Simulated scan of single mutants.
Amino acid sequence: MLAVFAKSLSSHDPLSGLEVGERPEPSVTDGWTTIEVRAASLNHHDLWSLRGVGLREDALPMILGCDAAGVDEKGNEVVVHSVVPSEDWRGDETLDPKRSILSERHMGTFAERVTVPRRNLVPKPRELSFAEAACLPTAWLTAYRMLFTRACLQPGATVLVQGAGGGVATALIVLARAAGARVWATSRSEDKRERALGLGADAVFEPGARLPERVDVVAETVGAATWEHSLKALKPGGTLVISGATSGDAPPASLTRIFFLQLSVIGSTMGTREELDRLVRLCVERDVRPVIESEVPLADAREAFATLAAGDVFGKLVLTR
């Protein structure tokens, strides 16, 4: 079957190890099932995998990809939840210290077919296309958990989204707006700031800009480059929720500001199958749709990877069949 896989790893030239070609059909173990993949979306995790972060040399060749939507063995349209917990784990999958996600220990979704645990399947409603549904399990689920599970965002609150443009950031803007929050966003790119307004952001700013007032919640995925601004943007008692650090993970702690203003700094990682199910329903019931930069045939995956690596993306890149 046709697949996109990591043949080798390189921290300085990740695309050098990317291959598009034939791979063996997946084998099915007890409790797992085979999905015919109709669409799968890219994440920065796929680039990190090619750099050797979370993916070991002894696991190569590894089919990449976390997210997918497709058809199961019974003909049902489904969305794949990518977090794979331990066999005996009960409760929130993201808290399992032995958890993994597809493309780390188990073959990923950038293929014509993928095997996944049956418990990882969520019904895909007919209102969502396969491409739209494939955007939800990682970036959009991460945003959902950040806003509603971890930050407990309330209607009418003001949320600042740092670094508008990527898959998580665009999801944060759309979901916060759908929940009745006032949404502000930052970006270095004037074009991305304008596009954030088009998604429903109430105001946009350059990174580090002085804001009209302090906010209730800051959604942070950038890290060191925006950390100080994120803390200064919060009103007393406000919440900073972080799910990534693309610019580095060693910013000044600003401990005095945190304790004196009683700020909450909360980590957030991925999301549960139950949260994915709720996110899918939210998209249908509130007519919310993922932002898709482009859809690319699976055979042309290298083009999509190069676009993601260049950083010139607003929303999600989707591989389709």
Results as ranks from 00 to 15, higher is better:
residue 42 L to H: 13
residue 190 E to R: 14
residue 65 G to R: 01
residue 42 L to Y: 15
residue 184 W to G: 06
residue 213 E to L: 12
residue 174 V to N: 03
residue 287 D to H: 09
residue 117 P to A: 04
residue 120 N to T: 04
residue 128 L to Y: 06
residue 25 E to P: 01
residue 296 V to L: 13
residue 58 D to M: 00
residue 99 R to H: 06
residue 24 P to R: 02
residue 202 D to V: 06
residue 159 V to T: 01
residue 316 K to G: 00
residue 157 A to M: 10
residue 61 P to S: 07
residue 303 E to G: 14
residue 283 C to F: 03
residue 11 S to I: 15
residue 222 V to F: 08
residue 97 P to K: 08
residue 150 R to W: 14
residue 120 N to P: 11
residue 187 S to N: 14
residue 6 A to C: 09
residue 221 T to M: 06
residue 310 A to C: 10
residue 2 L to E: 03
residue 318 V to R: 08
residue 183 V to H: 05
residue 159 V to I: 09
residue 267 G to E: 04
residue 39 A to T: 12
residue 172 L to D: 02
residue 25 E to M: 02
residue 282 L to D: 08
residue 200 G to L: 12
residue 258 I to S: 00
residue 255 L to W: 15
residue 244 G to P: 07
residue 287 D to E: 04
residue 116 V to F: 03
residue 138 T to H: 10
residue 79 V to M: 03
residue 254 S to D: 06
residue 177 R to K: 15
residue 169 A to R: 12
residue 274 E to F: 11
residue 129 S to M: 07
residue 212 P to E: 07
residue 103 S to C: 13
residue 90 R to V: 08
residue 77 E to V: 01
residue 91 G to C: 11
residue 32 W to K: 01
residue 281 R to I: 02
residue 105 R to Q: 15
residue 176 A to R: 01
residue 176 A to K: 00
residue 190 E to T: 08
residue 296 V to A: 09
residue 71 V to R: 03
residue 61 P to I: 12
residue 256 T to P: 05
residue 185 A to W: 02
residue 67 D to P: 01
residue 286 R to D: 00
residue 219 A to H: 07
residue 161 V to N: 00
residue 184 W to F: 13
residue 52 G to D: 07
residue 5 F to H: 15
residue 152 C to V: 05
residue 291 V to S: 04
residue 2 L to C: 04
residue 68 A to P: 02
residue 277 D to R: 00
residue 201 A to I: 12
residue 230 S to A: 14
residue 96 D to K: 13
residue 241 V to A: 02
residue 185 A to G: 14
residue 75 G to Q: 01
residue 84 V to A: 12
residue 164 A to D: 03
residue 91 G to K: 08
residue 265 V to Y: 03
residue 271 G to F: 10
residue 191 D to F: 14
residue 293 E to I: 03
residue 43 N to D: 01
residue 246 T to V: 15
residue 194 E to D: 14
residue 216 D to M: 04
residue 208 G to F: 14
residue 10 S to Y: 08
residue 253 A to Y: 11
residue 222 V to G: 04
residue 121 L to W: 10
residue 53 V to K: 08
residue 245 A to E: 03
residue 108 G to H: 12
residue 197 L to G: 13
residue 176 A to D: 12
residue 220 E to A: 09
residue 205 F to D: 09
residue 108 G to D: 09
residue 228 E to Q: 07
residue 58 D to Q: 13
residue 77 E to H: 09
residue 107 M to V: 12
residue 206 E to Q: 13
residue 217 V to F: 13
residue 4 V to H: 14
residue 94 T to P: 03
